[in-house]
Design a protein around this nucleic acid. Structure first.
Lengths: 128, 128
DNA sequence: ATAACTGTTATACTATAAATATAACAGCTA
DNA sequence: TAGCTGTTATATTTATAGTATAACAGTTAT
């Protein structure tokens, strides 16, 4: 597991965990069905409380990234992540709008913005 | 002034205010040098506390969107908003990365993502 | 001058979220 | 039986969001 935390960040720990696990799935560092550490062991490894890990896991489960078997453990969703639906697009649009509004204010062109997005996309390209 | 608030939203009120004012600047609904309502009158109009408005104004000032003259009032920055610099790009990248990571997980292609961004960009196109 | 308006500062309070600290429960497994 | 799962419950601390008053200093119009 290569999860690192920035305890100085304003981003809550459980959010950092969520983002890193989602990034790991995007980068194919985690395979469908692969087991994730238990809440206790991950909390122990990172030096944080088990409830913080549990909160991240619960939300990842709610959003379909992982499955949690009551007395087994936590695994990356074997069926993969649900495709983009209407709710997802609406949500993503709401998150992008303020970013693009500021970009417009700062004279960032549509093309420059897309260039940055494409560059970030390449970060999640599986290494050949 | 066309500022509306969603008091049920998880997004803090002062953040909603910031986003709407930035969006207003992007849409050229606000012109450089144009006056904004005082903290008291805007707070009164919106039915919220003056400190909440003040917090939004202070951050907008900090980020260069508005100017505040001590005993005069609040105006849209007459010099326009500062162009994108290194700090801005780094910050924007950090905000986009989790969105793009999830998009990759949900099989959203670079092209589809860019299509959405372009569509949002058109929202901020000045009406001819 | 006075009244009414600016932003600013200070203090206090409530409510909520984030994170931690323990503890216990139920079920699986070696 | 011991040790591991996730889960639930309770309590505490800390930080943020938002409100409620009050006062100060400077401007502006009456």
């Amino acid at each position: 597991m290569f999860l690192t935390l920035d305890l100085e960040s304003e981003e809550p720990i459980y959010t950092q965990l969520k983002h890193q696990i989602i990034a790991g799935i995007a980068k194919k560092e985690f395979s469908p069905g692969e087991a994730l550490p238990s809440v206790r062991s991950l909390a122990s490894d990172l030096g944080i409380n088990l409830h913080t890990v549990n909160k991240a896991y619960q939300q990842l489960k709610q959003e379909g990234f992982i499955l949690i078997h009551r007395q087994k453990g936590v695994v990356i969703n074997p069926d993969g992540v649900a495709k983009a639906d209407d709710i997802y697009w609406t949500d993503l649009t709401a998150k992008l709008r303020p970013l693009i509004a500021e970009a417009v204010c700062r004279d960032v062109s549509d093309e420059d913005f897309q260039k940055l997005c494409s560059q970030i996309y390449t970060e999640f390209q599986p290494k050949e």
